[in-house]
Amino acid sequence: MGCTCDDQQNLAQSLQNDTNTWTKLQDLLERFRGQRGSLVTVLQQVQDIYGYLPRPVMQHVAEVLRIKPAKVYGVATFYKQFRLTPMGKYVILLCQGTACHVNGSERLAEALCEELQISEGETTTDGLFTLSSAACLGCCSLAPVMMINGLAYGQLTPQKARQIVKELAEQEKGSLQEGGLQ
């Protein structure tokens, strides 16, 4: 693989050109400038803006908050919540907690990986789905459970899980076609 500096430069440029998110970022940093212990919170809100933590933005955060870039990067990679690559439109959080495990969550994982043709932690090439896992979603009584964009689906079987994902994909196709007609 060659050097990615150019890519990063291009990305940095295009991020700055998106004035909407860029102003939000500046406002955010302004609010937290000089507040001690705010790095985790700042990164959480940056992720709310972009859906992930783009590298040039982390660099920028470090400069504005006067923190070493290595520290920002260290915190970003320590916590599972932070993502360094863009996420799909639908984020599937598959529960891998104890109750879900004894109720067969591993077979759900297999089924979803096969249905989406990706492994855990990856995003489908059309940018629609990201498959991710969580330790416990707090609905163990409904095990096995998955959550898609904040909505929990309980008492799943591999077939049901596939079905839910299929329906979402269909829905997307439908709305794309509608969009095309307008």
Partner: peptide, 25 residues
């Protein structure tokens, strides 16, 4: 309120305090 960011070890009290301070827990 401080929101955690997904690390089991942050439940340990000294790690939790490091995390509130904005560092790696």
């Amino acid at each position: 309120i401080k929101e955690g960011a997904g690390a089991f070890v942050c439940g340990e009290e000294t790690a939790l305090m490091a995390s509130i301070e904005g560092r790696r827990g």
